[in-house]
Computed example of a mutant assay.
Amino acid sequence: MSRTVFRVRNVNGQLPLSTLMDDAGILSLEHQFHLQDVLGEHNWRVDMNAPVFEFTFPSGETLTCESFHFLGSAAPGPASWMWAWANPSGFPEALTQLAGSVRDLGERHGVAELTSAEVPFADLPGAPDMPHNAVGPPTEAAKVLTGRWTSYNGEVGGGTRASFLVEHPAFRLPAPAPARTAGLLQQAVSGLPLTDHRRAVYTYGNLRGLNPAFADDGARLTLSAEGLALTVSFDEYGRVKNVEGALDR
């Protein structure tokens, strides 16, 4: 299975975690919307020793992931995120190896939150105060750095939430369509904690194969592919102002 990985650029050896969240945000959201469509009503279970990650549906049918990766967990007691490679429970290396590669990339790009074994919620972007929000920043960074884009998190006891990257052919995105893409962009800029709309939309277009191109003044960005042509305009503050194009499908 091919991986779409964004080649990050940092300045003076430092890369804010919030920038990685901008890079990941829109494509990550599209994958999560698609995952919701695939799963619908479901239960989930994970066996870290087997290892098995499985979804069960009301019909009794199951979907078993081809592979999965344990990233880490957010616990309410210490109010912190702990990376899987630092967890003292001794999980199989195959399940934590990807988290270890995120740590290595964090060292390369100077992202402290990716290299510290345990990160207080207060030190994460937005200073989340609940585990279900705290899993977001490190998970988004892991997606854009590894090119694995579908995540799942759930409670594992005592209010702690564990975060995973999961893989299955059903989770792959369909080809982009104009109306869906325009709607996605509008939902992303209104609902995600993006700090740089221009970077976020450009990166999404690049990762999605939509040939992003800015106008000379930087006020408009075109996204184009077979059957799709959209123009995203930005206001004087760099925020998305409008998305225009043929939205017939």
Rank of each mutant, 00 (worst) to 15 (best):
D217V: 07
P193H: 11
S233W: 08
G227M: 01
L228Y: 03
R172Q: 13
Y152C: 09
D217W: 06
T203F: 07
L165G: 03
T195N: 08
N153H: 15
A215Q: 11
A162D: 08
L194N: 08
P176F: 00
Q187E: 10
R148D: 05
L165C: 08
V189F: 01
H168C: 07
D196V: 12
H197N: 04
E167H: 08
R148T: 14
G159V: 04
T203L: 11
L192N: 04
G191I: 01
P193E: 11
S163Y: 09
P176E: 02
P178M: 05
L165N: 03
A225N: 06
A182I: 05
L173D: 01
G227W: 01
L230G: 00
T181H: 03
S151N: 14
P176T: 01
T231N: 06
R148G: 06
T195K: 10
A225W: 06
L207N: 08
N153W: 15
L230H: 01
N206H: 15
G158T: 00
N206R: 15
A162Q: 13
P174R: 04
L184K: 00
S190M: 14
Q186W: 14
L192P: 02
S151T: 13
L230K: 01
R220T: 13
R148E: 14
Q186Y: 12
G191H: 00
A200I: 00
D196H: 13
R172A: 11
T150P: 01
S190E: 15
T160K: 03
V156P: 10
R180D: 13
A215M: 08
H197G: 00
T231A: 14
G205W: 07
V232C: 11
T146Y: 12
G205S: 11
G191D: 01
F214Q: 11
R180G: 14
R172E: 12
R198K: 15
D196I: 11
N206T: 15
T150G: 00
